[in-house]
Simulated assay, not measured.
Amino acid sequence: MQSLIGTGVALVTPFNKDFSVDTEALQRIVNFCVDGGIEYLVILGTTAENATLSADEKELVITTVVAANKKRLPLVLGVGGNNTAEVVKELKTRDLSAFEAILSVSPYYSKPTQEGIYQHYKAIAEASPIPIILYNVPGRTSSNMLPKTVLRLANDFDNIVAIKEAAGDLVQAMQILKNKPAHFLVISGDDMIALPMVLAGGAGVISVIGQGFPKEFSEMIRLGLNRKVNEAFKIQYVLDECIDMIFEQGNPAGIKEVFQCLGIADNTVRLPLVKVEEDLSQRIEKFLKKNI
Rank of each mutant, 00 (worst) to 15 (best):
V9S: 02
V9H: 04
P14C: 13
F15V: 13
S20I: 05
V30G: 02
N31L: 12
N31E: 14
I38C: 10
V42E: 15
I43N: 09
T47D: 09
A55E: 14
E59F: 01
L60E: 15
V65T: 14
V66W: 11
A68I: 07
A68K: 07
P74R: 11
L75G: 04
G80L: 00
G81W: 06
V87A: 13
E90D: 12
K92H: 08
L96Q: 12
F99E: 05
E100R: 12
I102V: 08
S110T: 14
Q114S: 07
K122W: 05
A127D: 02
I133G: 00
L134S: 02
P138V: 03
T141M: 09
S142R: 10
T149D: 00
A154D: 02
A154I: 11
D156E: 05
F157W: 06
D158M: 14
N159E: 14
I163H: 03
G168K: 02
L170T: 04
A173T: 07
A173C: 09
M174H: 05
K180N: 02
P181V: 14
H183D: 00
V186S: 07
L195E: 08
P196S: 07
M197K: 00
I206A: 02
I206F: 03
S207D: 01
L223G: 01
G224D: 14
N226F: 02
R227Y: 05
V229I: 15
E231F: 01
C242Y: 00
C242T: 07
C242K: 01
I246N: 10
G250A: 08
V258H: 07
I264N: 08
D266K: 09
D266T: 06
T268M: 15
V269G: 13
P272I: 05
K275M: 14
Q282T: 13
I284Y: 04
I284F: 08
F287P: 05
K290M: 01
K290R: 15
K290H: 06
N291H: 04
